[in-house]
Simulated scan of single mutants.
Amino acid sequence: MGVRDDQKQATREKVLVAARDLFNDVGYEETTIRAIAERAGVSVGSVFTTFASKAEVLSHVMEHRLSDLYAEFDRVIPFLRGSTADRLCSIFAIHYEFETRRVKLFLAHIAASYSPSVDPSVTPYGRNERLTDMLRDVLDEGVRRGEVRADLDQQVVIDVLKAAYAWNYRIAANSGGQGDALVMSAAMDRQILSLAEGWRPR
């Protein structure tokens, strides 16, 4: 890369770090592009040269964070044990433990996903292909082990699991943005065990 490309990448990184911290500290709605630029030490024009909108900045912040999370999963997944339900519980417990480190940031991500004005450059919550693939792999393994019905509509189960995961963040929202990973994981465990009643072979 040339000097110009290096500078552009450096600006991008500064903007993402500044935005991540501001979204988590003061919230998505309260954070302005001007505030992000000031925190990053760059001009407002530089932010708009790199990103089309605040929503796109949030999308890239979350994408950057998820790369760290899934690097961890790449190490952990081969060691998951137990039933299909146990494995799913473990996957979501790891997600809660990770996201509650910056719970207001994740709440902003969920909220932005339901905005009617979400632009095409944004990857909203629920469109994470890595999570989808991971859940499908667990369900496929459950079918092979005889724990999950072969005729199960896996996409419906995956959608419900993602919805339940996001719904449990209401616990964090209702406590002023203080996320308790153990409480949310316990709620998710109960939901997964309930779903497991429906996917068992008949």
Rank of each mutant, 00 (worst) to 15 (best):
E63W: 09
E29T: 15
R75N: 08
E30V: 05
A55R: 08
V26H: 03
G27K: 02
A35S: 14
V15D: 01
G82K: 05
I77T: 08
L107N: 04
N24P: 02
E38H: 07
R87W: 06
V76W: 09
R81H: 09
P78A: 10
V42C: 13
A111K: 15
I91G: 08
R34D: 13
V61Y: 06
Q7L: 11
V15C: 00
A55S: 15
Y70D: 07
F92M: 10
A85R: 09
L58H: 05
F51P: 01
R87P: 04
V61C: 11
S59F: 09
E63Y: 11
V61D: 08
A10L: 12
I33F: 00
R87F: 08
R20I: 01
A85K: 07
R12G: 01
L107H: 05
S83N: 04
L66Q: 13
S59W: 09
F51E: 03
S83D: 06
K14C: 06
A18N: 02
S59I: 11
L69A: 13
Q9S: 12
L66A: 14
M62F: 11
I33W: 00
A18D: 03
E13C: 03
D21Y: 01
I91A: 15
A35F: 00
P78H: 09
E56C: 01
V103P: 13
I110K: 13
V61W: 08
V26A: 03
K104S: 10
T100P: 02
T49C: 07
R65P: 05
D68C: 08
V76G: 04
Y96C: 10
T100A: 02
A18E: 04
V15N: 01
Y96L: 08
R34K: 12
L88A: 09
K54N: 08
K54A: 06
V47C: 02
E72Y: 14
Y70E: 07
N24D: 15
F48P: 06
T11N: 14
F98H: 14
S83I: 03
R101Y: 03
L16K: 00
A112R: 12
L58F: 12
T84G: 09
R75D: 12
D86N: 12
Y70N: 09
L88K: 06
A40Y: 00
F23N: 00
Q7N: 08
A55L: 10
S53L: 00
T49N: 12
A10M: 06
K104F: 04
V42Q: 07
A19G: 06
E99G: 07
A85E: 12
C89G: 03
K104W: 04
G41I: 03
Q7E: 12
